[in-house]
Amino acid sequence: MAGRPIYLDYNATTPVDPEVVAAMVPSLEREFGNPSSTHAYGRPARAALEAARDRVAGLLHAGAGRIVFTGSGSEADALAIRGAVLANRRPGRRPHVITQATEHPAVLAACRDLEELHGAEIAVLPVGPDGLVDPLAVADAITDDTLLVTVMHANNETGTIQPIAEIAAAAHERGVLVHCDAAQSTGKIIVDVAELGVDLLTVVGHKMYAPKGISALYVRDGVALRPLVGGGGQEGGLRAGTENVPYAVGLGRAAEVAAAALEAGETRRLTALRDRLEAGLKARLPGWVHLNGHRTRRLPNTLNVRIDGMRALTLLDDVAVLAASAGSACHAGEDAPSPVLTAMGIPADEAMTAVRLSLGRWSTEAEVDAAAAAIAAAVPGRSVRR
């Protein structure tokens, strides 16, 4: 990315790691067989697919359970949410699902589909000013008809990390399944499905240096799902269609690289860069920069701030040397306040000033310092310290 704008939008998507590209080449060039075929071309493809599955399981510390490859995180979320409710609903009973207000739109859409198409009742719990949902509120919301709780691990806009282990414990006391969208947290912090206590967990390839178009769903042993797409029986009968072996291999290699990076201290490195960026902004714009989200329970790479009196879209348009987001990339370009921030009680006019700066594998101290200086210089009428 040398010679191009400073990239601080890793939560939107990541570059594909060169090691991931290299790992994919054999499946594109030589091992092109259908993994369902039993001949000499199909067997290597099947072996590569299963090795990739094992690597993703390894990153999640998933000693037991299945990894189901999907085409996107949105698909994985839908398979988990709709699949779990439709496979476990009780005759004559209205299924009940619990989620929370700052979920990713894919999760909320899957819940709406259950409500509109299958008569489910959806409870959307509020969050506090820091973006956290209260595990006690989850426990109180559970009824005899609750089949699933779905709460994201870390928010894609603010980075706030939810208390998933406590939520899962409360749900399991009542025999309720738990799904967790871990698209943003996987690869940035340790994600251990056993420690979290979840039954279903979503992983997204393009958030962790694999290509777009490949994701995965962890499914705990014994959890029944109804597939979204039926047919050939691939992916243990949960996703029909010939598997995308090269991209699955890429996700598997990305999982290996992420595990090694975490062990080498990537979380600490990202935290230091994030804090340096925040400090640089506050030093240059004293009193005008305000954090959105939890101060400590947040992703190490994510800084979401409001800058008084400066609309985020205007700021980002003016700072040509920087690539970042005004809120979630799923709503980029819309001149409207972020639903995540308004759910946290931030007034609409203040939410319009929020910018998300997210760091990644190739972020450097020099880039962070240059970004802070460029942002501060673009804010008119402020006391800017050079």
Rank of each mutant, 00 (worst) to 15 (best):
L277N: 03
G231L: 05
A248Y: 03
A76Y: 03
P95S: 04
R112D: 15
I189G: 02
E266F: 03
R43E: 13
T314A: 15
G92R: 02
D221Y: 03
M208G: 03
P5H: 09
G63T: 08
R298I: 03
G333Y: 13
L217R: 01
P44H: 06
V204T: 15
C111L: 08
I214S: 00
G3V: 10
E121T: 14
A372E: 02
G73Y: 11
G175T: 13
E367R: 00
G231Y: 09
D54Y: 05
G33M: 12
A312N: 01
R253W: 01
A255E: 08
C111P: 09
E31F: 15
V319A: 05
A194T: 14
I67C: 00
A22P: 02
W362S: 11
Y218R: 01
E334W: 06
E334R: 13
G333K: 05
A169S: 10
E75H: 07
V138P: 00
A283Q: 06
T202W: 04
D181F: 14
P5N: 09
R93V: 15
Y41V: 11
A332S: 10
L86N: 04
I346V: 15
M1T: 12
A240M: 03
E235T: 05
T102S: 07
T158S: 14
D54S: 13
G73D: 11
N155Q: 08
E263C: 01
A48T: 00
S363R: 01
A248K: 00
I375D: 01
H206R: 06
P95T: 11
G250V: 08
G241F: 09
G360K: 05
V368D: 00
L270Y: 08
C330M: 15
A371Y: 09
R4M: 15
A48M: 11
G92C: 04
L200E: 05
Q162G: 05
A139F: 12
